[in-house]
C-alpha cells in the first residue's frame, strides 16, 4: 500500500509544486471560465424567472470547458518540456502515473471551480455556496478528471491535440454532466432530496467505473 501511494503522492506533488511556482494553469483557466460565464450571461439574458433553469447548465458548461483545458494543459506542459519521457522512465507501474496525474488534475479543477462559484453566485444571483453542492462538485470533478486524464494522455500525442481532447472528452462526460446539472438544479430549488442522493450515487458510480478502467488502460497510452 505504501509503495503505491508514496510515488503517487510524489508525482502529484511535483505537479502541484510546479503550479505553485508558475500559477500558469489555474490562472489562465480561471480567467477563461469567467469569460465563458459572462458570454453565457449575454447569450441567454436570463430574467429572474428563467435564471433558475439557466444557472445549473451555464455553471456546468463553464466547468466542463475549464476541465478539458486543465487536463490538456497538465499534459501539454509535460510534453513540451520533454518530461513525459522522464516520467515513463520512472521505476513505477503505469497506474501509479495515472493516479498521480489524476490527483493533480482533480485538484487544479477543484481550485478553479471553488474560485468560480462565489463569483457565479453573485452574477447569477444563485445561492450556490451550499454544503450539498460540495458533494456534487467533488464527485463530478472526479468523473471529469478520470476520463480527462486518460484522454489527454492520448490526445497530447496526436496531431491537432487541442481539438482532439474536446472531441473525445465531451461525449464521454455527458452522463456525469447530466447528473451534475440535475443535482445542482435540485440543490438550487431545494426540492426532493431523495433524487439528489440518486444523482450523487450515479456520479460516484461513473467515477468509480472510469477510474478503474482508465487506470487499467493508461499504460497502453504511454508506450512508444
Amino acid at each position: 500500500m505504501r509503495e503505491f501511494w508514496v510515488p503517487v503522492a510524489t508525482i502529484a506533488w511535483k505537479d502541484l509544486l510546479l503550479e505553485l511556482r508558475t500559477k500558469e494553469i489555474v490562472t489562465s483557466v480561471l480567467v477563461f471560465a469567467l469569460v465563458a460565464v459572462v458570454v453565457f450571461y449575454f447569450a441567454l439574458r436570463p430574467t429572474p424567472q428563467t435564471i433558475g433553469f439557466v444557472a445549473p447548465g451555464v455553471l456546468w458548461v463553464a466547468f466542463t470547458f475549464a476541465g478539458s483545458l486543465v487536463m490538456m494543459r497538465t499534459f501539454v506542459l509535460e510534453k513540451e518540456q520533454g518530461s513525459l519521457e522522464g516520467l515513463m522512465l520512472c521505476p513505477v507501474s503505469r497506474d501509479v502515473l495515472y493516479f498521480g496525474k489524476l490527483i493533480s488534475g482533480f485538484l487544479f479543477m477543484l481550485v478553479v471551480e471553488a474560485a468560480i462559484l462565489p463569483v457565479f453566485s453573485v452574477l447569477f444571483d444563485a445561492p450556490l455556496l451550499n454544503p450539498a453542492l460540495f458533494g456534487v462538485l467533488v464527485l463530478t470533478t472526479l468523473g471529469f478528471a478520470s476520463v480527462g486524464t486518460l484522454f489527454s494522455a492520448i490526445s497530447v500525442n496526436t496531431r491537432s491535440r487541442e481539438i482532439m481532447l474536446p472531441i473525445l472528452f465531451f461525449p464521454m462526460v455527458v452522463p456525469v454532466l447530466i447528473a451534475a446539472v440535475a443535482a445542482t438544479a435540485i440543490v438550487l430549488d431545494g426540492a426532493s432530496q431523495e433524487r439528489l442522493g440518486q444523482w450523487l450515487a450515479f456520479s460516484g458510480a461513473f467515477a468509480a467505473i472510469f477510474v478503474t478502467l482508465s487506470a487499467l488502460l493508461f499504460g497502453y497510452t504511454l508506450e512508444e
Binding site: 476520463v147 484522454f151 478502467l213
Partner: peptide, 19 residues
C-alpha cells in the same frame, strides 16, 4: 483504449438519459 471506454460509456449514457 477509446473503443473500450466508449463502449462502456454508451451503456451509461443510456441509463443517464433515461433517469
Amino acid at each position: 483504449v477509446l473503443g473500450i471506454v466508449g463502449s462502456v460509456n454508451s451503456v451509461i449514457v443510456y441509463m443517464a438519459t433515461v433517469w
